[in-house]
Each structure stands twice: as structure tokens, then as C-alpha cells.
Simulated assay, not measured.
Amino acid sequence: MFSHIMIGTNDLEKSKQFYDNVLGALGVKPGFLDRHRVFWRSSTGTFSVSKPIDGEPSTCANGATIGFNMDSPEQADRFYAAALANGAVAVEDPPGWRGGPNGLYLCYFRDPDGHKICGLHRPPKP
């Protein structure tokens, strides 16, 4: 359904460094700069940060969450650890299973611009 996700930033270089490290934990190559935006591409989509083109400050969306698929709980833990090591703030419960035996493995953090990010592992259905 989605081709890409783009979020705003007030510090393009800081966001690039943050997401190079965090998405690097998922095997994504470093982002590339295109004018006032940075793009990270993978076989499943594109993630981007951008300075707002209207010249106003970037703000995070209250109630919004951007979720990244994880191949395993271990990958979610690496993603989360990389985020915290690079300036993210932990939010919600610690990484772990939610929703019982057929649930989801989730981790949540806020990036340096305040955007809420989730790592989600959905195990195969039995």
C-alpha cells in the first residue's frame, strides 16, 4: 500500500547520523542526501527525513507511530538498542511480547526529533 514514509526534521545531519545507525541495525545502507531530504531505500520501501519545505519548524505528530517490520525479536532488540545508543528515548513498555501466545514482539522509542518509532515482529501463524 505505501511506497514511502517521510518525516520532518530540524537537523538533517543529526537525523541522517541517527537513522544510518538505527536502520543499519536492520541491514539498510546509509541514507543519501537529495537537497533538503535524506532517503534510505530497501527492497520493502523507502524511509525519508526532510526539512519542511514551507520553512516552518518540524514537529512530530501527536498520536502517530511509524512501524518497521522486524524479522525476529532479536532484530527488534538490536534496532531498539541502536536507537537508544544514538539518542532515542525509550517510551511505553520495554521491548517484549504483547497480546498472549499469538501476539507481537514490539519495541517503541522516540527519535531525536520526537517521532514515535516502533519495531514490530509478527511471528508466522501456527
Results as ranks from 00 to 15, higher is better:
1 M>C: 14
4 H>E: 13
4 H>N: 12
4 H>G: 03
5 I>W: 02
7 I>Q: 06
7 I>W: 02
7 I>P: 02
8 G>V: 02
13 E>M: 10
14 K>W: 05
15 S>R: 06
15 S>I: 01
16 K>P: 11
17 Q>W: 01
17 Q>Y: 07
18 F>A: 11
18 F>T: 09
18 F>M: 11
19 Y>Q: 01
20 D>F: 07
20 D>K: 10
23 L>N: 06
23 L>C: 06
23 L>I: 00
24 G>Q: 12
24 G>R: 12
24 G>P: 09
25 A>H: 05
25 A>D: 07
25 A>E: 05
27 G>F: 05
29 K>F: 00
30 P>E: 08
30 P>W: 04
32 F>Y: 15
32 F>W: 12
32 F>P: 05
35 R>P: 00
35 R>Y: 14
38 V>T: 09
39 F>S: 08
42 S>K: 12
42 S>G: 15
43 S>M: 11
45 G>L: 03
48 S>D: 02
52 P>Y: 04
53 I>N: 09
53 I>A: 09
54 D>V: 00
57 P>R: 10
57 P>L: 05
58 S>G: 14
58 S>A: 15
59 T>N: 11
59 T>R: 14
59 T>A: 10
60 C>H: 15
60 C>G: 00
60 C>D: 14
61 A>N: 09
62 N>S: 11
63 G>W: 01
66 I>N: 11
67 G>Q: 03
68 F>E: 04
68 F>M: 06
68 F>V: 00
69 N>K: 15
74 E>I: 00
75 Q>I: 01
75 Q>Y: 02
75 Q>P: 04
77 D>Q: 13
77 D>R: 08
78 R>F: 00
80 Y>E: 11
80 Y>C: 09
80 Y>S: 10
82 A>L: 01
83 A>W: 03
84 L>H: 11
84 L>Y: 09
85 A>H: 09
85 A>M: 07
86 N>W: 07
89 V>K: 15
90 A>Y: 02
91 V>F: 01
94 P>I: 03
94 P>G: 06
95 P>E: 06
96 G>H: 10
96 G>R: 09
98 R>I: 07
99 G>N: 09
103 G>L: 02
104 L>F: 08
107 C>T: 13
108 Y>S: 01
111 D>M: 07
111 D>C: 10
112 P>G: 12
114 G>H: 04
115 H>R: 01
116 K>N: 14
118 C>K: 08
121 H>T: 09
122 R>M: 11
122 R>N: 12
125 K>F: 09
126 P>Q: 13
126 P>C: 00
